[in-house]
């Protein structure tokens, strides 16, 4: 008689190996451990709860289907994060195709109003508690365009290099640099605005 596995006590790689042999319970344990992070990445990119749930579930289904391809070169969470990022980027590309060319879209690369913004000399996030800082960052991120937000997420949170971001976003390195620059400038202005509001 086979011993009942104590899944919560197993490390990710042991669960992956078991799941690669068809053990669905092991896969469920992996999902249980990382579901919040995968959902959070989808939500940060899509800014829509329903899309984030659907896409993260799709990512887990793909994760199961492609499990045999996982060799353990990165952590399982990193591997799953790559899947969800690619799904979100595909979805955003579909949305972009549906959008008509607008001034907003043309300004994505050229910077729009961000070109005219004065440099924020003081640090708007100084002396903020971590929780408050995170809230402000999230509020500011929500106001960015998909393109600016995505490049910031990939660079600052996923810590990808320009080249890797360009590959994922299917654009040139120059475009990545430009988007990242204007995204950072806009973030600085938005966070400085929150500080001014607070001082009032």
């Amino acid at each position: 008689m086979a011993l009942k596995k104590d899944y919560p006590s197993l490390e990710d790689m042991a669960l992956v190996r078991a799941a690669q042999r068809g053990d669905m319970q092991a896969f469920e344990e992996l999902m249980g451990r990382h579901r919040d992070k995968i959902y959070a990445r989808a939500f940060s990119m899509m800014r829509n709860e329903e899309d984030a749930i659907d896409l993260s579930q799709e990512a887990w289904v793909k994760g199961w289907q492609r499990l045999k391809q996982f060799q353990g070169d990165s952590s399982y969470l990193t591997w799953m994060t790559r899947i969800i990022i690619n799904l979100c980027l595909d979805q955003l590309r579909k949305h972009k195709r549906q959008r008509a060319d607008s001034i907003e879209l043309l300004e994505e690369e050229s910077g729009g109003v961000e070109r005219q913004m004065p440099v924020v000399t003081s640090n708007p996030t100084e002396r903020l508690e971590r929780g408050e800082l995170r809230q402000r960052i999230d509020r500011a991120l929500a106001l960015l365009s998909h393109e600016h937000r995505t490049v910031l997420i990939l660079h600052e949170f996923e810590e990808l290099e320009y080249k890797e971001i360009a590959k994922r976003m299917q654009c040139s390195i120059g475009t990545v640099m430009s988007r990242l620059f204007y995204a950072r400038r806009k973030m600085a202005v938005l966070m400085a605005g929150y500080k001014r509001e607070e001082l009032k």
């Binding site: 959070a40 640090n123 708007p124 996030t125 800082l133 995170r134 960052i137 600052e156 620059f181 950072r184």
Partner: peptide
């Protein structure tokens, strides 16, 4: 300014 923004963002993603 760019450095401040970068420093603020790194490791400070809201947990959802």
């Amino acid at each position: 300014e760019l450095r401040n923004t970068r420093t603020a963002l790194r490791g400070n993603e809201l947990e959802i």
